[in-house]
Amino acid sequence: MITVFERPKSLTSAKTHYCPGCTHGIIHRLVAEVIDELGVREKTIGVSPVGCSVLAYNYFNLDMQQAAHGRAPAVATGIKRVNRDKVVFTYQGDGDLASIGTAEIIHAAARGENFTTIFVNNAIYGMTGGQMAPTTLLEQVSQTSPQGRDPSLQGYPIRMSEMLATIDGAVFIARVSVHNPQEVSKAKKAIKKAFELQQAGRGFTLIEVLSTCPTNWGLSPREALKWLADKMIPVYPLGVKKTPEEGEI
């Protein structure tokens, strides 16, 4: 018998708590596959945040630390400064990274901390029940923007990757998506490149992954994928925002 598909070693067999149609599962898998392919499972330490992926420590078959809301980059700084020869990553959502943890992510980048951040942007707070996030689109309805996000009241969506790309300590910043197989494949390449740059000691790397939240968007999984492509990508254009070399990934 030939094995054509199996669970990455870097994932546990635990059943995840993610909603049907949510793309967190895909992103977990991509990170796990990259860690397996790089052969660093036994030297990787992950940091799970507060938010939907709060329980990620149950799903990654790795040493993990659970961090306070927004503080994953600070926790990862502590871990990496002690474990200089290990691979360290944070896995954070948009509320965690772009709202309560803005200071931590910016300064980790500014210090050029040599770890990788996987930033899952689904334009809403999932775990707490669909509140407006800093990345919520204009006119997007959420529990705390019931009339749709109005810039005169609630300001504008924030583009973290573009902002972070201006920081000298950041070496590789890219925005990818997982709404179709082609983009999933590109996303994996970007994640792998970030981990490789970290292994080479180059500095701070961040991959922003556009992700769906069918439950809180009030859409079916299929509609959610389409909404991501049609609505989110125009506001959050995909691509490499900063790279040490010329050219695309």
Binding site: A68, T77, A103
Partner: peptide, 26 residues
Amino acid sequence: GVFVQAESEIAAINMVYGAAGSGARV
């Protein structure tokens, strides 16, 4: 050893968390 001036006390204590969780005297 390592000295880091953090961006805030909040960040500093969370760096302590990460380093302590990694087994260091911090």
